[in-house]
């Protein structure tokens, strides 16, 4: 009794699956929102100091070397962690020891990761100024008020691949290109592939 419906179900899923994949490959476009997100992510990238990880983050100190070097390296934050590590030692398992070392080795990484964004700093500080009893009006929102206004000229358009003036834009992601050659470069390398 179950036999016939089962067959039909399997064929239906196959059909559905294939159409989904073809949708993904061919017709998907980025909507305005996604494009905007992409742009802001790129702009944030421009303010980054480093595009790679801290080369000293994963240094594992020589086992024979005395351990006090660790504390000096990371400053006060790692001292705290070192204390925690000692507590761990009460139950000395191999796993616990490893975890402790990993924690100690990456203070800079943690600092970077949990750092507040600059705008968060500004917003927080302007709130403090707002709420202070005798706020100097000149300091209220000064950072945002000083931002230069948008240009009166329309933005110019440049090819994302070669940097020269461009007349066309990609139908899927909106990036600009100047000719067939640059379009192919774009399709092969960057189109839709920045969606992290």
């Amino acid at each position: 009794m179950f036999f016939p419906p089962r067959k039909s179900v399997s064929s239906a899923t196959q059909l559905r699956a294939s159409s989904r994949i073809s949708n993904l490959e061919g017709n998907r476009t980025l909507d305005e929102n996604a494009r905007k997100n992409r742009r802001t992510r790129q702009l944030d990238g421009l303010e980054q100091d480093n595009s790679h990880d801290d080369p000293h983050a994963n240094i594992i100190w020589n086992k024979a070397a005395p351990k006090f070097g660790d504390e000096l390296d990371g400053g006060p934050s790692s001292v705290k962690k070192a204390k925690k590590g000692k507590d761990d030692k009460a139950g000395p398992t191999v796993h616990g020891d490893k975890a402790r070392r990993r924690k100690l080795a990456r203070p800079e990484f943690n600092k970077q990761r949990f750092k507040k964004s600059f705008n968060a700093h500004v917003v927080e500080h302007s709130k403090i100024i707002h709420s202070s009893a005798d706020a100097d009006y000149r300091r209220i929102n000064a950072y945002f008020l000083s931002t230069a206004p948008p240009s009166s000229k329309p933005p110019r358009k440049f090819c994302a691949a070669c940097g020269k003036t461009s007349n066309y834009s990609c139908t899927r992601c909106g990036a600009r290109y100047c000719g067939i050659r640059c379009r192919d470069v774009h399709n092969d390398t960057r189109c839709m592939k920045w969606l992290a």
């Binding site: 702009l43 421009l46 931002t147 230069a148 948008p150 240009s151 009166s152 020269k164």
Partner: peptide
């Protein structure tokens, strides 16, 4: 090639790289 002058050009036209602010010259006038 093009990068030689397109890079400093961003100061005069931030809109070239999608920053929605005016350039130095316009800011001076403003």
């Amino acid at each position: 090639g093009v990068e030689r002058f397109a890079t400093p050009e961003i100061l005069f036209n931030p809109s070239d790289i999608d920053i929605d602010q005016c350039g130095v010259a316009e800011a001076v006038v403003e």
